[in-house]
Amino acid sequence: MAILDIKHVSKFFGGLAANSDVSFSMEQGMIMGLIGPNGAGKTTLFNCITGYYPPSKGEVTFKGTRLNGLQPDQVCRLGMVRTWQKVRPLAKLSVVDNVMVGALARTSSLKIARELAMEQLKVVRMDHKPDFLAGGLPIGERKKLEVARALATKPELLLLDEVMGGLNPAESEEIIQLILELKKRGLTQMVIEHDMKAIMRISDRIVVLNSGEKLAEGGPREIADNPDVIAAYLGERVE
């Protein structure tokens, strides 16, 4: 059974269709890449899936539960969590406190939450500075903090919204290794990314959005060779 099933999802803002009739599904343990030009509706789709917007039409099913009408916090407790393209650190809280807020979704004990949080900080290799203020971190570490905080909620499906955006090549490589490591542990992931080389390396399948519609879906090779995708987005063949 698919872990996530998106059926005919549309989202209208007034007359503008930010998503129209998008359908695809994800299997347990896979990494789905979500690509498309700016304004294609990638983040809107994330918002529809995670409960920030109710879809105007269509439905989203996660682990057999229909999500329409559920709030983001309920979606999180069901086991699906997202990160933000524009990072949202809890600036006046320390690094470990940020991650603890995530962990508290699964426990009420601060002690257990702290242990959980330190575990996740180790996963993203940030366990050396738990007491720094989140607001003072450089962008690369803020991105990793977002991932750690999301992981602390014990998700089965992690949605990453441009987690490599604004990072230098070394930092991006670290994130790629992290995503692959998480996959090895069995975590299902959906990844929005603009770095084509990265997305081709990590994705099992890729969905291409363009002007709110699904333009193509397939394996990385298939997508790279798809003439529609090349015309709408890639501009040249990706090796």
Partner: peptide, 26 residues
């Protein structure tokens, strides 16, 4: 302040949307 409530209150203060995504009903 030294309980789950305190953490949740501060998370909402710092960023309500982020808090919402982390399982907190603001």
């Amino acid at each position: 302040q030294h309980s789950k409530l305190g953490y949740y209150f501060q998370a909402i203060r710092e960023d309500q949307d982020a808090a919402h995504s982390l399982g907190i009903n603001p």
